[in-house]
Design a protein around this nucleic acid. Structure first.
Length: 311
DNA sequence: AAGACGAAAGTGGTTGA
DNA sequence: TCAACAACTTTCGTCTT
């Protein structure tokens, strides 16, 4: 998630919006749509999040001024807290439009989930887990929404029953990231949870099957931007790496291969072509694969595409 | 000395009988 | 259920810059 101080207003007029769409990338860190041709920011996703940051759930609770919305504690022994319809906070001040939207959404959830009480508690726990995971993985608003949507459906269909809430949430996060095309590897997600990669993968497959999720095939190009960003490489490298992946696809080198590994090799190669060299070790580390995999993909690419890297 | 390369053995998941 | 298999990892020795 981008900090608010990294917000950049639209700097160009409508002319720049004519930028061909295939040259536009989305920077998930800043929420900006960037044209690779000229490096222009041509769009900015609204940051729906709070203006402060919290690194765990209790911190978030302390900082939430309006209170209530995050914690729908409708436990058995606890007095239920309801979100009323006045659109005002505890001190009687009017809520901002963003807060208002959030409150109405939560109201809806609360009403829907009031009937089965155990489901409500389960959902609360899932939201806690999601909050933790979100901050660690830097998930944006759209993804969090989608995760909760997936989770609710899973809960309704009884997929969660008998499984660790954390595992199902992690699986929903993985699915949501894939659907929103901001992929995280299973390893990354597993790193921030107490469940194994294996269990998350099992839950993920179950979710896809039971809910009939339509998850696009992982595209190496979605990884390229992340890898290049982490390594501080320019947009030029990204365009080059995209081209390489496209050619590799046409040459039939991509089937059955780990998209992260392929992206890593493309970035490695592109960086060398452009002259912003990075070692195989560095690229492999941020891509979450080993040097050997980068090497193997790299070898295949230069062999089949006849690319020669000038020293 | 660091980086790149490649061989060999091991791992975890998928597929098909 | 089990074996074969493909892709990837780990490890390690060697070559190159």
């Amino acid at each position: 998630m981008g900090d608010l101080d990294s917000f950049v207003p639209l700097i160009d007029g409508p002319d720049e919006m004519k930028c061909p769409s295939d040259k536009v990338v989305f920077d998930e860190l800043t929420g900006q749509y960037i044209c690779l041709e000229g490096g222009y920011v041509i769009g900015q996703e609204l940051d729906m999040g709070p203006e402060w940051r919290a690194f765990d759930f209790s911190e978030k609770q302390r900082r939430s001024r309006t209170g209530g919305p995050i914690n729908l504690s409708v436990g058995s022994s606890v007095i239920s807290s309801m979100i009323d319809w006045k659109d005002r906070d505890a001190t009687g001040k009017k809520l901002s439009p963003l807060r208002k939207a959030e409150a109405s959404r939560l109201r809806r959830w609360q009403i829907r989930s009031r009937i089965p009480d155990s489901a409500n508690r389960n959902l609360q726990q899932a939201m806690d887990e999601l909050n933790n995971l979100s901050h660690r993985l830097g998930l944006n608003h759209a993804i969090r929404e989608r995760v909760m949507h997936i989770y609710r459906e899973a809960l309704e269909k009884g997929v969660v029953r008998g499984r660790a809430v954390e595992a199902v949430v992690a699986a929903a996060v993985y699915a949501a990231c894939r659907i929103e095309r901001l992929p995280r590897t299973l390893d990354e997600i597993a790193l921030h949870t107490r469940v194994s990669k294996k269990e998350i993968a099992r839950c993920y497959r179950l979710l896809v099957k039971e809910l009939g999720l339509r998850v696009p095939i992982a595209d190496p190009r979605d990884f390229i931007r992340r890898i290049a960003d982490s390594l501080g490489l320019s947009g030029h490298v990204i365009t080059e790496a995209m081209k390489i992946v496209d050619s590799a696809r046409h040459a039939g080198l991509t089937a059955g291969k780990d998209p992260a590994g392929l992206a890593a090799a493309a970035v490695y190669l592109a960086a060398h072509i452009v002259g912003e060299k990075r070692t195989q070790k560095e690229v492999a580390a941020v891509a979450g694969v080993t040097e050997v995999t980068v090497r193997n993909r790299y070898k295949e690419i230069i062999q089949f595409l006849g690319i020669t890297v000038a020293e």
